[in-house]
Simulated assay, not measured.
Amino acid sequence: MIDLYTAATPNGYKISIALEEMGLEYQVHHLDLSALDQKKPEFLAINPNGRIPAIIDRDNDDFVVFESGAILMYLAEKTGRFIPSDPKKYSQVIQWLMFQIGGVGPMMGQANVFFRYFPEKIPAAIERYQKEGRRLFEVMNNQLSTHQYLAGDEYSIADMSTWPWVRIHEWSGVDIQGLVHLQRWLDELAERPACQKGIVTPPPADISDQERAEQIKKMLSK
């Protein structure tokens, strides 16, 4: 049994997708980020950084793992799935996983903040992060022009990590027009049952975009 501490965000969805793909039994603990559940002492005891997601592996002496990339690697190695045993192919998966962790996630996250949530509009910041998001998508599009998936011809944790961020490109104001290979990959993953289940675990809050923006502005002010 895996205890999953998460919320309805791309980083959280990475792990629910992985758990679904790997067929692992898990229990969801939904943290209310607007109520700052992630900063409460009981969660900080699990993840000192106060961020979701985090897991506790009850079948491995209650072993705790935080940081989404580390969780994906742990689960893949635990199950022996979605990460190759061949050293070169393994490295390729990790390279694309790090591409998401160090590039796509942070740039899209900042695009979200400045485009949607920041109290004042700063055009230079919005342009910077949207342009970098588009550049990263172009890198992915080029890779996907000759490979079915990011790290080659096998679906991997690199795809699970990246797809939840790319699929919300419109929310970040990043255009993918003309990136046909990226669109093909987005559509293909959207058909996977585990991806469909993962992006509603936990379900998004039933609130308007304006209410969501106000909640996030409140979080940013704290």
Rank of each mutant, 00 (worst) to 15 (best):
A124P: 05
K78H: 11
T146P: 06
E154Y: 03
K78A: 02
Q148R: 15
M98L: 15
R116V: 03
S145F: 13
L33V: 13
G152H: 05
A35L: 11
N60P: 07
M108T: 09
A125D: 09
W185N: 04
M219V: 14
W185V: 03
H181A: 09
P164H: 14
K121E: 14
H169G: 06
R134K: 15
G12I: 08
I83T: 01
A111E: 02
A213D: 14
D32R: 07
Y74T: 01
P203M: 06
I94S: 06
A158P: 04
L31K: 12
T6D: 09
A111C: 09
F66D: 06
R51F: 03
S145T: 06
D209N: 15
V93S: 01
D62F: 02
G152N: 04
G109M: 03
G69D: 04
E67P: 08
E77F: 08
A124S: 14
A54C: 09
E188P: 04
K39Y: 13
R128G: 04
A111K: 05
K131F: 15
M108K: 07
I207L: 13
G102D: 01
F66A: 07
S91G: 08
W96F: 14
T201S: 07
P202N: 11
V28N: 07
D37E: 13
V166M: 15
V64M: 07
S145C: 08
I71M: 06
I94Q: 12
A35I: 10
V93E: 00
K121Y: 14
F63P: 06
R134D: 12
K14C: 03
Q148I: 06
M1K: 14
G198F: 00
